[in-house]
Design a protein around this nucleic acid. Structure first.
Lengths: 333, 333
DNA sequence: CTGTTAGCGCCTTCAG
DNA sequence: CTGAAGGCGCTAACAG
């Protein structure tokens, strides 16, 4: 395992020169020939800088940890995709983990977070599972980006245009002539849930429609929970003709629920979902969705760790507008 | 940022004791009281071991890199899920990356791989993009697990029961009375592609059916490529009544192709897919699939890095049997 | 049983 | 313009 010293010796220079050549130190004035020779020698000896030593010395690892609830969720996958893409461009790599991994006191990720092993932390927080990680991060001054959910004033909150998206979805149904429109929201109490519910309410209000408080349900972003909660919602409100699902995954469950209850979509019930995952168009009933800038969100999350160094906390809204993608799950009344 | 020295001083012991107490060194005989005190002091000072220093010294980082083609692919997500789960239990964390990230010479991941920054490498290799990473890994003696695809004798090859799965899928169609059964395989040339094609052939042979070589197509695990290649396959072989798709994602494309060609599934064409992703049951036509032990594969991949230390290369087959999950995309002729 | 000490491999002043 | 040297924080071997 060739080290910096070996190549210094082989090239007939000092270790300092090697280090600076390798790291492309621009303040270094050196004969072009020597530079070439150093590089060549490094290549020949198959030199690769030791990652641990380098981070020990430089105090940053080039690693960003991303903590999500369920690595299997296609919505998050889109975010990861953006994050991974941008991270690569910035010379960073991404550690992925489910929030449950933080429960274990001895979890590696927790140790990395505590011990400066990561340069940044992206948290898709909900429910409070990751509070521990967050607390540690804060104490250690690790730059943290919160995805969509407020948790702590120290971290940057990155948000999607939730209100707009929900309004757009609701308005679409209204324009199709629907007047009794329910909402299957995401988990209760989260910032973005509140915003989406607000968007739904606002759109109904603006159209002079009555907001039936019973027509609001909450489901986790899982197909089965979506199915269950939609079922309850539909049974409690048999007169609904439109449903805004705040998450595409739970919307799949909603479709399922309607199917089980023998409610035809879209003839008897129109459904719009927030998040335009790829599967949406291939479902039993191709889903009308509102496309959100998820990939972009991943990109922005990573960017935060590059740009920053100055402004830490605060909120950053992703400006890109949500877009309505009409498919077959909605129709005029 | 409290260090080991601070807590040693505060607790009135040496740094060595602190280190060993913190790391739970079982060979250390120490008064229970002292041990408690050290732990308490560490807690009070909010001590967290420095990750870089620790890996520098101990020569392992607790990081496993997993390289896949497309983080958005639900099949891989299942594998990641298993890997993440097991890694957490083993006190390791997972670095995720798309293979394209390795193209960049300066990519962090590549540097980690070269510079001993990761303890292991899991490669879902195909096409050769990741050869560079692999070569580096081999040179640096980083334990590597290849997922499904043979690339290099130095690495452990972890395989699914591909032949059995394809046989099972094909046999299912045969039992339903089909005699003209095509195969939409995965990318040409890969080990597991060959195995699945072999399974298809074997099953046909065993039933005394003719293998029409024209009825074999290859598609990448993407919906659109699946659609395209199925279309070609179907147009070249209009008499097919059954199709074995070697990948669930391309199978979605196959469904799409049939729909576009106005071929009814399952009335005119029965489709079985390998890999039982969650979406399969929610598709336009709920897909009959062969469930493979993907989660298990993730778990096993990670286990390799714990158990090993002795046997490096070789192949490991995941024994768990593939299971047929009947849904609506297949019917008797 | 506990403490002292010598690096792990690199980067970065500071002399030369 | 280049080389020598001191740690970064921790661990493992070796004294005491």
């Amino acid at each position: 395992m060739a080290g910096i010293a070996d190549i210094a010796k082989a090239a007939g220079v000092s270790t300092a020169v090697v280090s600076r050549v390798i790291n492309g130190d621009s303040t270094l004035r050196i004969a072009e020939e020597t530079r070439k020779r150093v590089l060549r020698t490094a290549e020949e000896l198959d030199y690769a800088p030791n990652a641990a030593a380098s981070s020990l010395r430089s105090a940053h690892s080039g690693l960003i940890a991303m903590v999500v609830h369920d690595v299997t969720n296609p919505v998050y996958a889109e975010i990861l995709s953006g994050a991974q893409h941008k991270a690569t461009l910035q010379g960073q790599a991404i550690l992925i983990s489910e929030a449950s991994a933080l429960d274990d006191r001895a979890s590696r990720l927790l140790r990395l977070i505590g011990g400066g092993g990561v340069d940044g932390l992206i948290l898709q927080a909900a429910g409070g599972v990751s509070d521990l990680a967050l607390a540690r991060a804060a104490r250690k001054k690790i730059p943290t980006v919160l995805l969509q959910t407020e948790l702590d004033a120290e971290a940057t909150l990155l948000t999607l245009p939730d209100i707009e998206a929900a309004e757009l979805a609701t308005r679409h149904l209204i324009e199709l002539g629907h007047t009794r429109i329910g909402c299957l929201a995401t988990r209760e109490g989260l910032t973005f849930t509140q915003n989406r519910v607000e968007g739904w309410r606002t759109a109904l209000d603006a159209a002079g429609l009555e907001v039936e408080s019973l027509a609001l349900g909450f489901a986790d972003p899982a197909i089965d929970d979506g199915r269950l909660k939609t079922r309850e919602l539909l049974e409690a409100n048999p007169d609904l003709t439109g449903l805004v699902c705040c998450n595409a995954v739970s919307a799949i469950g909603a479709l399922e629920a309607a199917y089980q209850l023998e409610i035809d979509v879209p003839d008897q019930l129109s459904i719009v979902a927030i998040h335009d995952i790829e599967m949406a168009r291939h479902l039993r009933v191709p889903l009308t969705t509102v496309k959100m800038p998820l990939f972009e969100m991943g990109v922005r999350a990573i960017e935060m760790f590059a740009k920053r160094r100055n402004n830490s906390a605060g909120r950053v809204a992703i400006a890109q507008e949500p877009i309505l993608v009409e498919r077959s799950s909605t129709r005029n009344l």
